[in-house]
Design a binder for these strands. Sequence first.
DNA 1: CCGAATCGTTAGTCGTAACTTACGGTAAGT
DNA 2: ACTTACCGTAAGTTACGACTAACGATTCGG
Lengths: 113, 113
Amino acid sequence: MTTNATTLLTVLGDPTRQAILDLLLEGPQPVGELAALLPVSRPAVSQHLKVLKGAGLVVDRQEGTRRVYRVDPDGLAPLRAYLERFWQTAMDAFAQHAETQHADNQADKEKDR
Amino acid sequence: MTTNATTLLTVLGDPTRQAILDLLLEGPQPVGELAALLPVSRPAVSQHLKVLKGAGLVVDRQEGTRRVYRVDPDGLAPLRAYLERFWQTAMDAFAQHAETQHADNQADKEKDR
DNA sequence: CCGAATCGTTAGTCGTAACTTACGGTAAGT
DNA sequence: ACTTACCGTAAGTTACGACTAACGATTCGG
């Protein structure tokens, strides 16, 4: 599922989910392994993984009796695009502001004569 | 103040703060103006602006009796860097995984003979 | 100097979601 | 078939933060 940047940010807002993603960054891992490395119970990890999966940030594959999760790099694409666009327009606004400031200073200098 | 990506994500996790940033993207605005465009009260906006300011995402300047806020583009730098690095390592892991899969398939083919 | 306008802060309420416990379900081993 | 291992889900509790209301501070204008 492809998700927009707003919901992606809300999903990534939780520290536990951030920790889960950071752990999965070092390689695919089953649920129990993740829970053992985290200060929360295993069902909690399952619920977080469900949210992450719903946001398209992770994918899972059945492996015997275990469920192995891994990060989906493409899931971050909308957020990256949003941040780039945001940063771009913010920079433009700042440049325009600096220009206006500069023009004002010029005007002040003119007035000082 | 320069903030790490983790706290930046937690700060950006709130929808109201996202809306505030989106409004500030169209130009610097005072608190009252923002509150008028949002479905929350003015103090709520003030508190969110305090958080955003603490994270280095916005800066404010006193203008008479009003306080004008604007986005600080550099505040997003740590998050952008984090996402790039995250995406990079996730891609590498995926590539390595695909390679291993390929090797396994090769091995299977060898075994089939 | 007094009133109006704008804002930050505090105290307190309330809703939400993160968490735990308990349960059921599936797959593999003996 | 029984047991063990691993996991998802449902129900219930709790903690946290987002919000409002009330107050105090600051600045400008008349």
